[in-house]
Simulated assay, not measured.
Amino acid sequence: MDIGLTVGDSLERAERTIEGFDLAELSIGEGSDPTEIDADRLETILAAVDADLCVHLPFKQDVVTPVPEINDAIVDYLARLLAWAGSVDAKKAVLHGTARNPHDTDLRPLFAEQLAAIGTAASDVGVELVVENVGHQKRGLPLSVLGDLARETGTAVCFDVGHAFMEDGDDGVERFLSGYGDLVSHLHIHDARSRGDTHLPLGAGEIDYSVVTDHLAGFDDSVAIEVFTDDVALLEDTAGRTRSILEADT
């Protein structure tokens, strides 16, 4: 199992915090040109600590709309970003599972088509696409819908435990992992509280992580700690707790 950090779009944050971790998950900002990222500096930062790279595609980019021309442009845009990700040897690319109207059932077949096309663009450049649950957000697909579409298209899942909790509590975490845990190849780990606080260090919130242990003990893929702090001690503590959760006996 590889445990790393989300570092936003900041090479400075990566350099300050990544030592001792296995990977950095770097965000590509909406509308930004990733070729302007200093690829040599990025490579140097990662090589110094022997860490791999994952990328997070733009947070606000919907996957599907009702307009075919816009959908084509979305695939083209994300394919361009993925080509850059492949050029810097990113292992995975995280995509938010969003739609212009996530409750419009007519869009779901189109979402599947879009997801498959984006997945092909990723695999063509040697990157694994992982679709992330964001059903607690206005444009996020509900957990079960996202799971069904990921299975239908053969797309791996980035399971964000905190997002699932914010959407439907510990029950939501349990149901998703019961039905779709085999699709998970990347995890976002943080704690959350039902009042709305999220991206907290583990132990500071309300999530029952024993549910994760029940379904993912022995997990042997990639994990990104998504705690919004540069306090390395807090990040390392959450990483240690994460390792205990996922390496626990089944």
Rank of each mutant, 00 (worst) to 15 (best):
I74S: 03
I28M: 09
V67C: 01
R151A: 15
V212S: 09
H103T: 06
L202D: 05
D221G: 00
S178Q: 13
T120A: 11
F159P: 03
D22C: 07
F219S: 09
V125D: 06
L53V: 06
T98C: 10
T44N: 12
G240C: 03
C158W: 00
Q114H: 02
G135S: 12
E132A: 07
P102V: 00
N133A: 11
L202V: 09
R151S: 12
V64C: 06
P34G: 09
L146I: 11
A217M: 03
R151G: 05
P201G: 12
D214I: 00
N71L: 12
V49R: 09
R241V: 12
G31N: 11
G147E: 13
L187F: 14
L78I: 15
I74E: 03
G179D: 14
R193A: 13
V94G: 01
L141E: 08
G135C: 10
R193I: 00
T35L: 08
E15T: 00
R100Y: 13
C158T: 15
A121R: 08
D89V: 00
I245K: 11
E206N: 06
V49K: 04
G169I: 07
A164Q: 02
D191M: 06
E25S: 10
E25K: 13
D230Y: 02
G203A: 08
D38W: 04
I225W: 04
L202P: 05
P66K: 05
L26H: 08
L107R: 05
P66A: 11
F219G: 09
I3C: 13
S185E: 13
K92H: 10
T17I: 15
A164G: 03
D89N: 14
L200A: 09
I28L: 15
T44S: 14
V223Y: 02
H188Y: 12
V64T: 05
G179M: 05
T17R: 07
L23K: 00
R175E: 07
R139G: 07
L149T: 06
A73E: 15
A85K: 09
D72A: 14
E25V: 07
L235P: 03
T17H: 01
K92E: 07
H186K: 06
L78Q: 15
K92L: 13
A47M: 02
G29A: 14
L81W: 00
S244C: 02
L115T: 01
N133G: 14
D170Y: 01
A47F: 04
L95S: 10
H199K: 04
D62R: 11
V184T: 08
P34D: 10
S32G: 02
R175Y: 01
R13W: 06
L246R: 10
L115W: 00
L110S: 09
E247H: 06
A217E: 12
I189R: 08
V173T: 04
A90C: 06
E247V: 02
S10T: 08
G205E: 08
V173Q: 01
E206F: 07
E174L: 01
S32R: 03
I225S: 08
H56F: 02
N71A: 03
D208W: 09
T120M: 03
L57P: 03
V94I: 15
S10F: 14
Y180M: 10
G154A: 11
D38Y: 06
D106T: 10
K60P: 00
R243T: 13
L143E: 10
A48H: 00
P68G: 10
R13H: 12
A99Y: 11
T17G: 00
L26T: 05
D2P: 01
T17V: 15
D168W: 05
D221R: 14
L42V: 01
V232Y: 11
R80S: 15
E167H: 13
G181Q: 05
